[in-house]
């Protein structure tokens, strides 16, 4: 359980980091929190020849409100988001999602950007990004900065739209006003484990009617699954318990989940049915 040898570079600027990456993109991995990468290296499931450690680069952690969006810089630790004082439904969602990321000693180290770049289908942050149609900004030395829509970002298990020479630098999420309700419900075998199924949802209700609905599900496919069926079931309808039940049923019928030792497809559908209402709370 010791990693393969690698070369280690710890630049103090993003430009320098991008230059290292550009030098040998296929054999270089970005080391952020390392809470997913290092276990894989210890198991020798990942054997990068070079690590570029972004922990010594100043100014790439923290959050800013820019107009009507929240910008989360890449190296923002999970714990910082768990402790965010951001008001409103988005702050609520971020605090609750962060609290479900591993355990305290993982949250002190692991990062928001790292989670997205790692792209585990059960990751809370991938679900939040998917749910809220995040804009994900990446930079490379060759092509500069570009913004990728969440819908285009998550490609398959452990695979994103990031090019090998790119570093994810920030993510922006829409601030949700108080007409929104947003939540997350996760079913994990033990405290701190990855969810078998995780449901995230955000609905906008105006005068008792759902004007906008978003549902993203984890653990039912290779990447976060936006449930079009659940969203369209709710949109334009009266915000009631029955509606939520109907949406959960629609989502459960829509997903085509995998089977593993923690549950088969039928069980994951059951969990979708159970968890979506818990993510949304009561009307």
């Amino acid at each position: 359980m010791k990693p393969s040898p690698f070369e280690y570079v710890a630049p103090t600027s993003m430009e320098e980091a991008l230059a290292v990456l550009a030098g040998d993109p296929d054999e270089t991995k970005v080391l952020a929190g390392g809470q997913s990468l290092v276990p894989m290296m210890n198991f020798r499931l990942a054997r990068p020849e070079r690590l570029v450690d972004i922990n010594r680069i100043p100014g790439i952690a923290g959050t800013d409100v820019v107009a009507d969006r929240l910008v989360i810089r890449t190296r923002t630790r999970h714990l910082a988001l768990q402790n965010t004082s951001l008001p409103g439904p988005l702050g609520h969602l971020l605090r609750h999602a962060a609290a479900k990321v591993g355990h305290l000693p993982i949250r002190t180290r692991g990062t928001f950007g790292g989670s997205l770049a790692h792209c585990d289908a059960a990751s809370e942050w991938c679900l939040v990004a998917s749910l809220l149609d995040a804009d994900i900004t990446a930079e490379s030395q060759a092509r500069g900065s570009r913004t990728i829509a969440a819908a285009d970002f998550f490609r398959s298990i452990f695979t994103t739209a990031l090019e090998p020479d790119e570093i994810l630098t920030s993510v922006s999420l829409p601030l949700l006003d108080d007409s929104w309700t947003a939540g997350i419900a996760e079913f994990a075998r033990r405290a701190g484990d990855f969810g078998i199924v995780t449901a995230t949802a955000a609905v906008q209700v105006v005068d008792g009617t759902v004007t906008e609905a978003r549902v993203s599900l984890g653990g039912v496919g290779e990447v976060p699954f936006r449930s079009v069926a659940a969203e369209s079931t709710m949109r334009g309808e009266a915000w009631t318990t029955d509606l939520i039940t109907a949406a959960a049923q629609a989502a459960a019928e829509e997903v085509d989940p995998p089977s593993d030792i923690h549950g088969d497809a039928a069980y994951r559908r059951d969990l979708v049915r159970a968890l979506l209402p818990r993510a949304l709370g009561r009307p």
Binding site: A10, G34, T108
Partner: peptide, 13 residues
């Protein structure tokens, strides 16, 4: 001051 897994951090870090 923060609890961390020392198996998931390299000494150089």
């Amino acid at each position: 001051g923060q609890p961390m897994r020392s198996c998931l951090m390299f000494a150089v870090q």
